[in-house]
Design a protein around this nucleic acid. Structure first.
Lengths: 241, 241
DNA sequence: CGCGACTTTGAAGTAAATCAATGGGCGTGG
DNA sequence: CCACGCCCATTGATTTACTTCAAAGTCGCG
């Protein structure tokens, strides 16, 4: 993990190009940039350790970071996949508590690391930053509840069906396509499944003619039947009349 | 559900007695109380419906409210148990999104219902209210992640062990006692278990001599072995040397 | 072309859900 | 004061869906 020294470079320009810092006042940016470093992490390198106190707020510039909780059986439960423009660690910074998850780069990544103290200070100074941060945290909470809902589904077909429906770009689209945001392994871990089960379920839905899978590229053909499956009481013999 | 009209009664005094409104400015309280009602709900009555937009922020005065997501098989996944002094619905109010869970009274309860618009207005006016609300939401997020961690445990003994350890009043207490905050049914639903499995696991841990169960009253005798169980790779033949 | 990472597929074992019935506590009413 | 009914918890027997273990297959990339 390489940290370019703050003294030599300031990232005001990099920052202002990112959606994350939209609407932040120029003075705030100036103050923050003094305590901001650009961090480079290689794939599989760890950014944050569960239980440690974060010293900075991370904002992803490029790459992918996966947040997960380690399980006793050497498995992981992915709680979030962080993409460019997104931040991580806001909640525990605000509460000044230990980080509740491991953060590991899913690919070679670049991040802005903003000093925690400076950030907290700015939070109290600037109304709109506080407002925006609150919204980010609220958004995370809502996303988490949605994930909880998916993982609560008893059958794995339903979990996968729910997941596929979640990817639907806009409401009431019966057919759509998208790309998996990470390895199938990690998607599976986010759904509370093993990669094997996930693979089998994708295969099953494909055989039913509801979706087409080509690597990470997925085409949902019949979102309606997918919705039916996800609300089915009986898991046997899905909805063919 | 009975709503006492706001015009006749003002709840500034009731509100100021509650920890929730600590540090709120008198003027804020005055303005809010104009749009605040005292709501009474009977046990099993519904307070909020998943998918609907909340028109008010609820703060529980007395009783118990359970937040849950309905599952296809007529089961529930409890996402939170709200006690006196706690609020519900902050996140979706802030984002102005649909409520992600059902809210039902677990017992006869009293709540303050604060008008959503007034609350949002106050949020932008008063720095400290915004700050406090952000912390509440962040707290919920952290709690949620902890619940996710528990539910992610593969074996049900581990889930129950994790839950019992979560009730530990302070760090490094090997023995402690507490009362279940709700019906075992609902605790089970929060752990992603059926009531039957939950009952069996409590019985198992009791037979192991790690805990004593008397109705809703639980005495943890050996928190250390409990911790061992929760981190065990193999679920068979727990930690007796 | 060949290696490593990731995914798919197959076969077997097991833990938890499900179904069903009993048991206990508590409040209400006779 | 006892009896009944209701709700909740427990216990037992059965089933099944998911994990697990193992191996082959695919993809991308140097």
């Amino acid at each position: 993990m390489i940290r370019l020294p703050a003294a030599t470079t300031r990232y005001v320009d990099t920052m202002s190009r990112m959606g994350f810092f939209q609407n932040w006042q120029a003075e705030s940016m100036e103050r923050l940039s003094a305590g901001t470093k650009l961090v480079t992490v290689n794939k599989n390198e760890r950014l944050a350790h569960k239980g440690e106190n974060l010293e900075q707020l991370y904002v992803l510039v490029s790459g992918l970071v996966r947040l997960f909780i380690p399980l006793p059986n050497d498995m992981e439960r992915v709680v979030a996949l962080v993409g460019p423009g997104e931040s991580l660690g806001e909640a525990c910074l605000v509460l000044n508590e230990a980080c509740p998850y491991h953060a590991v780069a899913g690919r070679d990544s670049h991040l802005l690391a903003i000093d925690a103290h400076l950030f907290r200070r700015e939070l109290t100074r600037d109304q709109s930053i506080a407002q925006q941060t609150m919204e980010i945290i609220a958004r995370r909470l809502m996303d988490n509840l949605r994930d909880t809902e998916i993982c609560a589904q008893r059958s794995s077909v339903q979990r996968v069906a729910c997941f596929l429906m979640q990817q639907q770009p806009e409401k009431d689209m019966i057919s759509y396509k998208f790309s998996l945001p990470a390895r199938k392994q990690d998607i599976a871990a986010k759904l509370g499944l093993t990669q094997e089960t996930f693979s089998r379920m994708l295969g099953f839905l494909q055989k039913q003619g509801l979706i087409q899978v080509d690597g990470a590229h997925i085409l949902v053909e019949n979102g309606l039947k997918l919705a039916q499956i996800s609300t089915l009481r009986e898991t046997k013999e899905p909805c063919q009349p």
